[in-house]
Design a protein around this nucleic acid. Structure first.
Lengths: 201, 201
DNA sequence: GTCTATATAACGATAGAC
DNA sequence: GTCTATCGTTATATAGAC
C-alpha cells in the first residue's frame, strides 16, 4: 500500500519536472519514465494517457501559482509588509521551481478554454479583501488612485518577469549564474520599494 | 524571380504564425504548409528542415522583440515621453503579434545557449545612452536611486506580463475579449504614470 | 519549382507473460 | 504491479515524376 502511493508520487514528481521544463508537446513519456526510474508502460498503468498525466501536473502547478498568492493578498497584514511577504513568497517558490511560471503561462495560452473552466471550477476569485484594503488606502489619502486589478497585475508581473526572462537578462547584462542569483536576491528587497513608491502619495 | 521570393516569403509568414502560436515542438510542418497554401515538401525544398525553418522565424522574432525597444531607449527623448513612447511601441507590436513575447520567452528558455550565442552575434548591448540618462537624472535629484538594469527590466516586464497572462486576467477579473482590449488600451496611458511614479523623488 | 508517393524514425499506447 | 515486446499512428524527411 505505501509502495503504490510511492510509485504514483514518483511518477508525478518526474512528470512535473519534465512537463514544466519542456511543456506538453516537448515532453516525452520515455523521458518521464527514465526520470522516475521506472518502465514506460507504468505511466499508462497509473495515468492511462499522456494527456491525463499532463492535466494532473498542470492543475497542481496552477494551484501552486495562484492561490498561494491570493492567500497572502487576503491576509490581515498591512500594505507594506503584505507586499514584502508577497514578493518573498513568490521568489521562494521560484527558487524551488524555476520553470513553474513559464509552464503555466505557456500552457494556459495553448488551451485557454480548458484553463478557464478549470480555474473557475477550483473557485479562484478576485482577492476581495485586498481590493477593499486598496480602496480604503486610496480613500484615506495614503495611496494614489489606481484600479486594484492594475495593482495586482503589476505586482505579479514584476515578480514573475525576471524569472521568465532569465536567459535574456543574463545575456544582455552579462551575468553568470552566480550574478543572476545575486540579482534576484537583491530584488527581493528592492522590488517592494519600487512597487510601493509607484502608488505612494 | 519575383515568384521565388514570394513563395519563400509566404512560407516564412505562415511559419511565423504557426511557430509563434504553438512553439517549436507543438508546430507541425503540415500545418505550416496548409497555412501557406502549398505542398509540404516545398518547406524542405526551401528550408531543408523544420529546425532550420524554425531558426529563421525565431531569430526574426527576437530581432523584433528587443532591438526595437532598445532603439527607443537610446533615442534623444526626455525620460517621460520616452517611457510613453516605449509603452506605446510595445503595445502596437503586441496588437499585431499577440503571441510574440510568449514565443520568445518560451523558446529562449528551451535553448538558452543557442539563444545567447545568437543575441551576442547580432550585437545587442546594454542601452548605454539610456543608462547614462538615468544616472544623470538620479544625480540631478530628479529620480530616486535605482539600478538602470532594474528599471529596464521592470519597465519591460510591466509591458509584457499582461499580454502573457491574458487567459488568467480574463478569467480572474471576468473580462470578455472586448473588456480585455479596453483594459490594454487604458493601460497604455496608466502604465507610464505607474512607472514614473515609482522612481519620482 | 511543384507535385505524389514513400521511406524512416519516433512516439503514444496496448497485449501478455510473470 | 512490473516487465518485454510490439502495434498503430503520426511526424519529418526524401525520391522521383512532371
Amino acid at each position: 500500500m505505501p509502495e503504490e502511493l510511492e510509485t504514483e508520487e514518483q511518477i508525478l514528481e518526474a512528470a512535473k519536472r519534465v512537463f514544466q521544463e519542456q511543456g506538453f508537446s516537448g515532453a516525452r513519456m520515455q523521458e518521464i519514465a527514465d526520470e522516475a526510474g521506472i518502465n514506460k508502460s507504468m505511466l499508462h498503468y497509473y495515468f492511462r494517457s499522456k494527456d491525463k498525466l499532463f492535466q494532473k501536473v498542470f492543475q497542481e502547478s496552477v494551484r501552486q501559482f495562484f492561490p498561494v498568492i491570493f492567500k497572502v493578498l487576503n491576509s490581515d497584514l498591512a500594505l507594506v509588509p503584505k507586499i514584502e511577504k508577497l514578493v518573498e513568497t513568490y521568489y521562494d517558490m521560484f527558487r524551488q521551481q524555476p520553470h513553474l511560471p513559464r509552464f503555466v503561462i505557456h500552457e494556459m495560452n495553448q488551451h485557454p478554454d480548458r484553463f478557464k473552466e478549470f480555474v473557475e471550477g477550483m473557485g479562484v476569485e478576485v482577492p476581495e479583501k485586498f481590493v477593499k484594503q486598496i480602496e480604503a488606502e486610496i480613500e484615506a489619502g495614503e495611496m494614489k488612485s489606481i484600479q486594484p486589478q492594475e495593482f495586482i497585475i503589476n505586482t505579479i508581473g514584476l515578480c514573475v518577469f525576471p524569472v521568465l526572462a532569465q536567459p535574456m537578462i543574463k545575456t544582455v547584462f552579462q551575468m553568470n549564474e552566480e550574478q543572476y542569483h545575486q540579482f534576484l536576491e537583491a530584488r527581493k528587497k528592492e522590488l517592494p520599494k519600487f512597487i510601493l513608491n509607484a502608488v505612494k502619495k
